[in-house]
């Protein structure tokens, strides 16, 4: 196990380096720069600006400088927000997105796995139809529709919540609900599909034949194997949910990091793009590692291979 994790860590470090390198050069080849504006700045001023940020250096030099400061844990200054550093922006905003993400994740897991399990064990009954319909509706109505609909209904017409904002605990309810449902829907479908696959297998039949209660059969035997696809899905999904959602954070005016993933690209805020990419890459690699460990635990026959 220790060897396995060490090896994965080294592999991931290499992968991270490749991600950083590729992203560094990609953002610079995209048309438009951080100082491209509708009212053109004069060439002299543009030169002065670029000199300030070291953009007048050859690209390889900038790349090495970036790696150098990265090694010191410094993600550089933001181009869009001159008086803030990328470190600051990330440390300011990640907790917000993570808080929203954690609540949404809880909603998603309880709703998604719960409904999916119910649907699978009561297959082709009305329970299944209701649960499955929930999943399909959740998938087919995108968050940018659900969000405004809930705001109109619950905030404007009933006056229960703020239309948007991130001040008190009540402000967490609507965005967490929308984001939670958005993930619960696919989770419920995957859980149902995965469980159905397992419920017909021999070891479950054997367990049933031995007189185990249905509850025990499901929780002890079926869920372990049946949740394999769910767990695979959860790796990237949790990374996504914890780093916030562009749509939800924009609709609900939430000061999270999710918006920066998209906005930094649009602003050509090179350093912030890289900062967010590094954040996401680290999370995705850690979570995919966690998934692999979880799957080995869920299925004792799978060994961790380094």
């Amino acid at each position: 196990m220790f060897r396995f994790i060490t090896s994965r860590f080294l592999q991931s470090l290499l992968a991270l380096f490749l991600v950083i390198t590729a992203t560094f050069f990609m953002v610079r080849f995209v048309p438009g720069g951080p100082f491209t504006a509708e009212k053109a700045v004069t060439p002299e001023i543009l030169r002065n600006l670029e000199a300030h940020y070291g953009l007048d250096q050859p690209l390889w030099r900038q790349y090495l400088d970036y790696l150098g400061s990265l090694a010191r844990g410094d993600l550089g200054p933001s181009f869009k927000y001159p008086n803030r550093t990328v470190n600051e922006i990330i440390f300011d905003k990640v907790p917000v997105s993570a808080e929203l993400g954690a609540i949404s994740l809880a909603v998603a897991l309880v709703l998604g796995i719960g409904l999916g399990t119910l649907a699978a064990i009561r297959r082709n009954t009305w329970v299944d139809y209701v649960a499955s319909s929930f999943g399909m509706i959740g998938i087919s109505i995108p968050t940018f529709v659900v969000g405004p609909l809930l705001v109109l209904a619950l905030a404007i017409h009933l006056g229960w919540f703020n239309a948007s904002g991130w001040y008190g605990p009540a402000d967490r309810v609507l965005p967490a609900l929308v984001l939670g449902i958005a993930y619960a829907a696919p989770l419920s479908r995957l859980t149902r599909g995965g469980l159905l696959e397992v419920l017909n297998q021999d070891f479950i039949r054997t367990a049933r034949a031995k007189g185990a209660s249905e509850f025990r059969v499901v929780t002890r035997h079926a869920l372990r194997g049946g949740l394999l696809p769910v767990v695979s899905f959860l790796g990237p999904a949790v990374a996504g949910i914890l780093t916030g959602s562009f749509v939800i954070e924009t609709i609900f005016q939430i000061p999270g990091i999710g918006r920066e993933f998209v906005n930094s690209a649009f602003n050509r805020d090179y350093t912030l793009v890289l900062g967010t990419v590094i954040l996401y890459a680290v999370l995705i690699m850690a979570l995919n590692l966690a998934v692999d460990i979880a799957q080995a635990w869920m299925n004792p026959k799978v060994r961790l291979e380094s």
């Binding site: 592999q11 590729a22 992203t23 048309p31 967010t276 996401y280 995705i284």
Partner: peptide, 20 residues
């Protein structure tokens, strides 16, 4: 690990670059 790398790429940048 290649999949991890692909996951981490900034999608808007990737798309704009493709078009360019």
């Amino acid at each position: 690990r290649s999949v991890d790398i692909m996951y981490s790429m900034p999608f808007p940048i990737f798309v704009i670059l493709l078009m360019v």
